[in-house]
Design a protein around this nucleic acid. Structure first.
Length: 310
DNA sequence: AATGGCTTCAACCGCAACCCT
DNA sequence: TAGGGTTGCGGTTGAAGCCAT
């Protein structure tokens, strides 16, 4: 007979978390650090199972989480990594340290899958039902501009978008807390766990630089540096025509072995992102990324562009 | 204004991998 | 080394919000 699921216990609360629960959880983790989730419900009095606490923390409350719209840069990375790794959302999320695997998975399922399908339909209506990463065997194209090419409007837009919108989870919690305080009687800030949490949150949200809620986590440092992290070492030379064979080769499992962790990839010691050792300006998915970008900015024109390319 | 369909995303579930004794 | 406990992961669900009619 197997062990009963942790969430089957009577009295365990399910469903959306309340601001009060969030505050209690954040406060506890602030004090004890994440981990030992089994003891969290017992020690905090939360009527949640340990798993629910862990998920709430990792997917929502953890510092350094970027919420809101995905930039076209991030979209490109997700598409690219999904093609390489498949639905390994945790692995993909490791390349986008500000995003959770859940967020990426949701974004893929709700946005990118559709976009790619549309892209394939645009390329060839017969392909709509085939795999998301294959291209017609006759397909070739020229992608002369790289991510780092400052003359490339798409690249510039990507970087601008990447650096513009950011709201840390700490800020989110702080905002959420404000709303909650407005709608609730003012608690005694001195003695209660909640009061302590508010103090903590206010401190952390008002400190501009090193507001690390979690002491084993440098995510706030990442906030300022991760923008630079996915700056593939691209060379400015134009790349050649990329054939279908190249494309398939890129996606083959053998190429996964080319992915290596490279400290120099990123100038921050807080994030050592993975990197492909092959030249990224030869990667055909840039074409898809470009198309996605174009699709977002000039919906009506993509058919013309695509037909001119092919 | 009402309502029904669609979309989004936080949260749940179950399984697998890992850890510890 | 086996077995139980814990954590991580990916797929799925369902409530809430949005939008068209």
């Amino acid at each position: 007979m197997g062990r009963p699921p942790c969430c089957d216990k009577v009295g365990i609360k399910k469903g959306p978390w309340t601001p009060e629960e969030d505050i209690i959880l954040v406060s506890y983790i602030q004090e004890h650090g994440p981990g030992n989730w089994r003891s969290v419900p017992t020690n905090t009095g939360l009527m949640r199972c340990s798993k629910s606490c862990r998920l709430r923390w990792t997917n929502y409350l953890r510092p350094g989480i970027k919420r809101g719209n995905f930039t076209s840069h991030e979209e490109g990375m997700i598409i690219h990594l999904q093609a390489l790794l498949g639905n390994k959302w945790a692995a993909i999320a490791s390349y986008l340290p500000q995003r959770t695997d859940n967020d990426i998975k949701n974004y893929w399922n709700t946005h990118l899958k559709k976009k790619i399908k549309k892209f394939q339909t645009t390329l060839d209506p017969h392909m709509a039902s085939s795999s998301t990463t294959s291209l017609p065997s006759s397909t070739t194209y020229t992608e002369k501009r790289s991510f780092n090419d400052s003359t490339n409007p798409a690249s510039v837009l990507r970087l601008n978008q990447t650096t513009s919108t950011y709201a840390s989870s700490t800020e989110n919690i702080s905002r959420l807390l404000e709303g909650w305080m407005r709608s609730s009687p003012k608690p005694d800030n001195t003695n209660t766990t909640v009061g302590k949490s508010q103090e903590i949150l206010q401190q952390s949200s008002s400190s501009s630089s090193s507001s690390n809620i979690c002491n084993n986590n440098n995510n706030n440092a990442m906030e300022t540096t991760s923008v630079q992290c996915y700056q593939p070492k691209l060379e400015q030379e134009s790349c050649d025509l990329v054939s279908h064979e190249d494309f398939e080769s890129l996606l083959s499992l053998d190429n996964l072995s080319n992915i290596a962790w490279d400290k120099s990839f990123c100038d921050s010691s807080t994030f050592h992102g993975p990197q492909t050792t092959q030249r990224l300006d030869n990667q055909p998915l840039l074409f898809i990324e470009k198309w996605l970008l174009d699709e977002a900015t000039a919906q009506g024109d993509e058919m013309v562009e695509l037909s001119s390319i092919f």
